[in-house]
Simulated assay, not measured.
Amino acid sequence: MMSNPLVFGLLILITVGLNTLAQTLMKLGVGTHPLNIYLLGGVCSYGLSTIFYVLVLAKLNLSVAYPIVIGLTIVVTTISGAFILREKVLISQWLGVGLLLSGIAAIAFAKNAENFK
């Protein structure tokens, strides 16, 4: 299962998606009753993302997996904040997102190039 790059990429995307979902749900749940469906959903999403992240760690070095997963989570969470939560995201923040994407690409391409040696 893990030798298929498409399946592995999907595991990374699921981890990122669940992390982003958790962040978004927690933001929606802030300021209401301490035990609400948004906060509970956020905690559950974090739990599920941890399970998928462990599967990612089984295949990738931590020095590669962590920056890719966390970096992509920052990118997707910023997009979620802008479009779902209607938060204002400044141009400088979008520039930071672009820099993050270039860093993630550098890490991923370096790892990919290592596999072809």
Rank of each mutant, 00 (worst) to 15 (best):
I37M: 14
L85F: 09
S63C: 03
I74Y: 10
T77H: 10
V89L: 02
V30M: 11
G103M: 05
G17T: 00
L57N: 00
N4I: 07
V16G: 01
N61I: 00
I104V: 10
S49F: 03
I91T: 08
V76D: 05
N115S: 14
G41H: 07
L40Q: 13
L25A: 08
L35W: 15
V16Q: 02
L39T: 11
V43M: 15
I79R: 08
S102G: 06
L40M: 15
I91C: 03
I14S: 04
P5K: 12
S80H: 06
V89N: 01
V76M: 13
I14H: 04
L28R: 15
T15W: 01
V89F: 01
T50I: 14
V76F: 12
F83G: 05
T73D: 08
F109T: 08
S3G: 07
Q93Y: 00
N19E: 08
M2R: 14
L21I: 12
L72D: 10
L18A: 06
A82C: 12
L39C: 06
A22I: 08
S49R: 04
M26K: 14
M26Y: 12
G103W: 05
I14M: 07
M1S: 13
A106E: 06
Y66G: 00
P5A: 11
K111W: 09
I84H: 03
M1H: 11
I51M: 12
L55H: 03
I70G: 01
Y66I: 00
T78M: 11
G71P: 01
I68R: 02
S92F: 05
L35R: 15
I84Q: 03
V97R: 07
G98Y: 01
L25G: 06
A106D: 05
I79H: 07
L21Q: 04
A113Q: 13
S80A: 15
W94H: 06
L13V: 03
G31V: 14
Y38L: 12
L10N: 00
A82P: 07
T24S: 08
L48Q: 01
L28H: 14
S80T: 09
T77G: 11
A108L: 03
T78D: 09
L85T: 08
I107G: 03
I68E: 04
V76C: 12
S49L: 04
V54C: 05
V97T: 08
V89T: 06
G17F: 02
K111F: 08
A113M: 12
N4C: 09
N112K: 11
N112E: 11
A106H: 06
N115R: 13
K27T: 14
G29A: 13
L85N: 10
G31I: 14
N19I: 04
P67T: 00
G96V: 04
L28M: 15
